[in-house]
């Protein structure tokens, strides 16, 4: 029995899992200082996506080969992107000289171990991690707020409308497409949309604070604007330079979404041997991609489109299946 609070915490982590290292910087590049408007529009687009998901593809089960293939590829793609982000983020800030395998292999095996214990463990872990994440993020954002000014937003609405629409689409795709992995878990439609809107509000809050402190020029320059903001925290005149501790909070949502993906994979594939091969190949490909700058750049730039294509294939194939009893 999964309670409502546990559903909310799981949805919160899954919604924010694509924002580190690819979410904020892509959206800021397209629509500079008017991103707040595109985030609000993007929430509405995402809510519409989730409504479609709930109506047509959740609670369906079927076993033909096409469905299995689509589930494999979707979940493996999401795990791949998550581990790629872990590798890039950890080697940029925390451990600059360590080889990639030592960073990614423990992380992915922990996610696999968590998924083996069942859905109850995953949901309880997210419920335990939720207050830590919310507390640290709100305190750090409020501490940074005094450096910000409203001049970074003015003049309002100078970005052309086409770009605002594109970036709101990007936002909707980033936040809503990962919810496809919840097709096995029985979530009520109203609760789903409500939790999605609450968690989206939190990321809008973070985005607004990033724009107001960094300024309209620097948000397009930095690769990790959500981490650069944390470098300015100064509490009570003596607590400073703690961005390393607070930056760890971003790892929680990557962990949660990877373990839900592994849980779905476990249901389709029953043998441990095949999943071990999948883990080894993911780690190898992550190393390969992060060492070649062109591939990493290509994935970074085209990430929303890739997500949308895979998500829509998933949607179409599941739409044709019959509802389970």
């Amino acid at each position: 029995m999964i309670t409502n609070k546990q559903k909310f915490s799981l949805i919160y982590f899954i919604t924010n899992s694509f924002f580190l290292a690819s979410g904020y910087s892509l959206i800021f590049k397209v629509s500079g200082k008017d991103t707040w408007l595109s985030m609000i529009l993007g929430t509405l687009i995402g809510a519409f996506f989730i409504y479609l998901m709930n109506k047509y593809i959740f609670n369906k089960n079927s076993n033909n080969i096409l469905t299995k293939l689509v589930t494999y590829s979707f979940h493996i793609f999401i795990i791949f992107i998550n581990i790629l982000v872990v590798r890039i983020f950890a080697t940029s800030f925390f451990l600059t000289k360590t080889p990639g395998i030592v960073i990614t292999l423990p992380f992915i095996s922990l996610a696999f171990m968590c998924s083996k214990k069942g859905i109850n463990t995953i949901v309880k872990m997210s419920e335990l991690l939720l207050p830590i994440s919310l507390f640290l993020i709100t305190i750090s954002m409020i501490a940074v707020l005094k450096d910000g000014s409203i001049n970074s937003f003015l003049p309002l609405l100078t970005v052309p409308k086409r770009k605002i629409f594109i970036s709101s689409l990007y936002y909707g795709i980033f936040t809503a497409i990962p919810h496809l992995m919840l097709y096995n878990i029985n979530i009520d439609e109203k609760i789903h949309i409500k939790s999605y809107i609450y968690s989206s509000l939190i990321s809008i809050f973070i985005g607004i604070i990033i724009i107001s402190t960094l300024g309209p020029y620097l948000i397009k320059v930095f690769r990790f604007p959500e981490y650069m903001v944390l470098k300015q925290i100064k509490l009570f005149n003596f607590i400073e330079k703690i961005e390393n501790l607070i930056g760890l909070v971003w790892f929680f949502d990557l962990f949660m979404s990877s373990s839900v993906c592994f849980y779905n994979l476990n249901k389709v594939i029953n043998k441990n041997f095949i999943i071990a091969i999948i883990i080894a190949s993911i780690v190898y490909f992550v190393e390969f991609v992060s060492k070649n700058y062109e591939y990493a750049n290509y994935i970074y730039k085209h990430l929303p489109i890739l997500l949308f294509i895979i998500g829509s294939i998933f949607f179409i194939i599941f739409y044709r299946n019959k509802k389970s009893s």
Partner: peptide, 14 residues
């Protein structure tokens, strides 16, 4: 002022 503010003003031309 912090270096970041100086850089932001210089590069954006505000």
């Amino acid at each position: 002022k912090y270096f970041k503010n100086i850089a932001s003003n210089y590069l954006s031309g505000e």
